[in-house]
Write a protein that binds this DNA or RNA. Structure first.
Length: 450
DNA sequence: TCTGGGGTCCTAGGACCC
DNA sequence: TCTGGGGTCCTAGGACCC
């Protein structure tokens, strides 16, 4: 290891692969509905707000990523586009299947996102051939098509992956260590991993328009204009690894649960319900990584597009003792909400963020003594883990918190109206075009007729 | 009271990613 | 009617301390 300007560099020959699921959410829908094959298909964000996944056919129609769904209605109708609400339960389950498969095929891997993973292929005689094998195996075992980019650094695998995905001629696998310069010259600088819109504009104005140009830019100049992160990107383009594979099991440093509401919300009671539901979900997430949080932030905001008077505010509460205990987190979230809530506004989004996260086992029991008897504390932990277990087995929302005003069932919006003392539940999501929970709900597993 | 260097911690905001 | 929901890292500046 050698150090220079904040960059850690590893010696030795490295070979990485980037596995990227093609149009992942659309591919998940297709696995269970083969009639979608060859058709233009899109998947919408929560509340059916905008387009977040497109099949190749939909991309060819000019449908943009992030396009508001209401602006695409005409186009969808004219071309018979199949439109789906997002079904994260299904996608998360499919993702796990893909990642489990990859885990069996590579000695080391980093799950980078719901649809991407980096693998280490150091030591394989023929990484290209092996990547084709991986590609076929994932397709056969899960039904999901993938592309693979191969290179000496993660940044180079991303560049290779871009060609593997965009240019069919490669057959889904591209190794950038052969003919790298030619590919880097064909890659627009804005497509480089780590170069976003701002830097792309700056680089183009400075006369650097391709990945190759960026690779050959002087260190000092890059350092000054793009910081050490930019310098790391440039070194990686040159084949020097600066970002190793992230260890499996690394815990998140922040956990956010936030949603746009199904309809605009004015009253405090409804906001309290929404915030309780989000705090409860965030608490589940943090318990699943066996951590506790030392601070909780609640935020609310009005619609930024509809011309309403705008207001958005957040409140952070430091927890006297780091915790993952749902009722305590709901209590603090409510206290924060009371501080920032202003009547007279129509809110369209709220959220809860847990921060200053530490592993539960590192929390010193001594800290707890003045507040909770140690035995009580372990009882609380057992209670939480029983609830999580039941919800995992029988579906999220089987057991929920009264403060959240009714189960956050996987399908969300149904069956909670009418009870006394209950708000109108306008904050719940709209998902009118939802596909069935094929893999995670006993009632919706497809039946095979023999 | 003023002057100065240097260190740490925290926070807000910017840039990026999917 | 109608515009997602997560994350990471870095930097600059202020407060505070010696």
């Amino acid at each position: 290891m050698q150090r220079n300007k904040g960059i850690t560099q590893k010696e030795g020959q490295s070979v990485f692969a980037l596995v990227d699921c093609n149009n992942f959410y659309v591919s998940c829908e297709r696995v269970f509905n083969p009639a979608l094959e060859g058709k233009p298909v899109v998947v919408l964000s929560n509340n059916d707000g905008c387009v977040i996944a497109r099949s190749n056919e939909a991309k060819s129609l000019g449908i943009q990523m992030g396009a508001p769904a209401f602006k695409c209605k005409g186009l969808f109708a004219r071309h018979g586009v199949r439109v789906h609400s997002s079904n994260y339960t299904l996608y998360a389950d499919m993702s796990k299947r893909v990642m489990d498969t990859l885990g069996r095929l590579a000695p080391e891997m980093e799950v980078y996102s719901i649809d991407e993973a980096f693998l280490s292929l150091a030591g394989f005689d023929d990484p290209v051939e092996y990547s084709r094998f991986i590609r076929n195996t994932v397709k056969r075992w899960t039904g999901v098509p993938i592309s693979v980019g191969i290179g000496r650094t993660k940044t180079l695998t991303k560049a290779a992956g871009w060609f593997a995905k965009k240019e069919q001629a490669y057959g889904g696998v591209v190794d950038i260590s052969a003919g790298g310069d030619e590919l880097l010259e064909r890659l627009e600088v804005g497509e480089v991993w780590g170069v976003g819109r701002r830097y792309a504009k700056m680089l183009i104005e400075a006369g650097i328009s391709t990945a190759l140009g960026l690779r050959d830019a002087p260190d000092e100049w890059v350092r000054k204009r793009m910081g050490v992160a930019g310098l790391r990107t440039v070194w990686e383009l040159r084949g020097t690894p600066c970002t190793p594979l992230k260890q499996a099991g690394a815990h998140k440093k922040r956990i956010v649960t936030s949603r746009m509401f199904g309809t605009l919300v004015e009253g405090l009671p409804e906001l309290r319900e929404a915030v309780a539901a989000y705090a409860s979900r965030a608490a589940e997430k943090i318990r699943s990584q066996e951590s506790v949080a030392s601070s909780i932030t609640v935020f609310i905001t009005t619609n930024r597009y509809n011309g309403d008077p705008r207001y958005s505010e957040s409140a952070t509460t430091r927890l006297p003792v780091p915790t993952s205990y749902t009722p305590e987190l709901i209590r603090c979230a409510h206290a924060g909400l009371e501080k920032i809530y202003k009547p007279g506004y129509r809110y369209n989004k709220a959220g809860v963020m847990l921060a200053d996260i530490v592993p539960a086992r590192e929390m010193q029991l001594g800290l707890l003594a003045p507040l909770v008897h140690a035995r009580d504390y372990s009882q609380l932990q057992r209670l939480m883990s029983s609830i999580d277990h039941i919800n995992a087995q029988w579906g999220s929302g089987t057991i929920w918190y009264a403060a959240a005003g009714g189960g956050e069932g996987a399908r969300g919006a149904e069956g909670t109206e009418g009870a006394e003392n209950r708000s109108r539940q306008g904050w719940r999501m709209r998902r009118s075009l939802l596909s069935p929970m094929f893999t995670t709900d006993w009632d919706e597993i497809p039946a095979v007729k023999a």
